[in-house]
């Protein structure tokens, strides 16, 4: 199968008054056509900045790209013209943003916003677009869609707003869907329904999906392969199965251990990873995780670990992991 996206040594830094925030620091990964790739990682590890970077949406300045190449279906995103980017963003890549209000306009009704997508990109008449939009709202589980479509985003609940945005992204039937925490605001039943819609899009139109989530349960059910990010870098990549069964990086271990379980008793303290997330403008020397790592040795403070290849699909960056 061909590759739809390949990212090579991507760095995205933010220039602040007195320092530089290294939000994404040397990221490389590929995405196959029709693949669903899971991305998990610590809050603040650069997941959203990466996604925005893939569509060249980070505000520049303060953002800048010291290195990297993003190739999407033969186009180098970082060298693309405004016109090329506009086309790609509208027709080929859709994004479900983590913050619903960043893609919804508070002053326009939901109807206006959904129909615009269809009229502009699919050339539909406004009646057709309205009908299609109401259908899509029903699919994402909004009751009385024909009445609700006339309302403004602030009249929707948090999860309903998130679903309006999902509806908008799905309406375009993109080649690549970037979904940044698409179901955080949703309860399990509606989450299942939304994930099924995404799978359907993937099956029927071959849409590739990058699925960012902190919900390891969602990754488990959706993707064959997953990346784990920490402090702007990929620290482990593996098939989802291996990631859960034999996590290698101590961060992945710790992440799996800190999930609350239904079998927990009330009052049992959870096991969070000790310490604070690293300051991205002043990263620890060596491996960024070493100050919080239970297995850190002297070497971890000195130099960044090389990638250890356990098998062709399973790689981790840690000095303590043996191939």
């Amino acid at each position: 199968m061909g590759k739809i996206l390949s990212v090579d040594d991507l760095r995205i830094y933010f220039k602040m008054d007195t320092n530089i925030v290294k939000a994404v620091d040397g990221l490389s990964f590929d995405l196959d056509e029709g693949e669903i790739l899971g991305v998990v990682g610590e809050s603040g590890s650069g997941k959203s900045v990466t996604c925005l970077g893939l569509m060249d949406l980070n505000p520049q300045p303060p953002a800048y790209y010291p290195s990297g190449k993003i190739e999407f279906r033969g186009t180098n995103i970082m060298k693309a013209t405004k016109e090329q980017l506009r086309k790609i963003r509208g027709n080929e890549i859709s994004m479900i943003f983590q913050d619903p209000m960043s893609s919804l306009n508070p002053f326009l009704t939901v109807e206006t916003q959904l129909c615009e997508v269809l009229i502009e990109h699919e050339g539909m008449s406004s009646d057709q677009a309205r009908k299609k939009s109401i259908e899509m709202l029903a699919k994402v589980g909004i009751p009385s869609p024909d009445q609700r479509i006339k309302q403004y985003p602030h009249q929707f609940s948090g999860g309903m707003r998130q679903r309006v945005m999902i509806a908008m992204a799905l309406l375009c039937r993109p080649k690549l869907l970037i979904a940044d925490e698409p179901t955080t605001a949703l309860d399990v039943t509606i989450q299942a329904q939304i994930l099924e819609l995404m799978r359907e899009l993937n099956r029927e139109y071959g849409t590739s999906i990058i699925l960012i989530t902190h919900d390891l349960g969602v990754v488990a059910g959706m993707s064959e392969r997953a990346l784990v990010m920490y402090a702007g870098k990929i620290v482990e990549r593996a098939s989802t199965k291996d990631l859960f069964e034999k996590p290698q990086h101590p961060y992945t271990h710790a992440l799996l251990k800190s999930i609350p379980k239904l079998t927990d008793v009330k009052g049992k303290s959870l096991d969070p990873i000790p310490g604070l997330p690293p300051d991205l403008s002043n990263l620890p020397t060596g491996c960024s995780f070493h100050p919080r790592c239970s297995r850190a040795v002297e070497k971890c403070k000195e130099s960044y670990p090389e990638v250890v290849t356990l098998d062709p699909t399973h790689k981790a960056s840690c000095w303590e992991v043996n191939a």
């Binding site: 998990v40 610590e42 809050s43 902190h214 992440l255 800190s258 999930i259 969070p272 997330p277």
Partner: peptide, 13 residues
């Protein structure tokens, strides 16, 4: 809901 599991655990604690 917007937090990864480790920080969720921190906040719950």
């Amino acid at each position: 809901s917007a937090l990864d599991v480790s920080i969720q655990a921190q906040i719950l604690n």
